[in-house]
């Protein structure tokens, strides 16, 4: 998985590419631990993300909890498979998906 970060003031965009799974979720978790301080607007751009498993969802959930305290979070450009996983797990109701 590749993680591209774009920061503009208190807004952070994380563009993910590849697979967010058992192996790569810890990489995202580590990146978020380093990057979320002071961020008030977090965007996950999933345009190039092919696959997500529960391991990735847990990291998103943890980020959502942090951002509930600091500001807001949204997911954009998720593909059909990822949207389906959001739907069946109830994440579609927890996350802001655009």
């Amino acid at each position: 998985m590749n993680i591209e970060q774009k920061k503009d003031g208190k807004a952070l965009v994380l563009a993910l590419a590849g697979r967010l799974d058992t192996v790569t979720a810890p990489e995202l978790e580590a990146a978020l631990n380093d990057a979320l301080a002071g961020v008030e607007e977090l965007t996950f751009d999933f345009e190039k993300l092919d696959y997500i498993s529960s391991a990735g969802l847990r990291v998103l959930l943890s980020a959502q909890k942090t951002m509930n305290r600091q500001g807001s979070m949204k997911v954009i450009h998720a593909n059909e498979m990822i949207l389906e996983i959001f739907e069946v797990t109830g994440f579609a109701d927890i996350l802001t998906v655009e």
Partner: peptide, 17 residues
């Protein structure tokens, strides 16, 4: 592609997770 993704996902959730 969809069937393969689902297969991998079910494997990952049951076995790996």
């Amino acid at each position: 592609a969809q069937a393969l993704r689902r297969t991998i996902l079910v494997f990952e959730e049951i076995v790996m997770q």
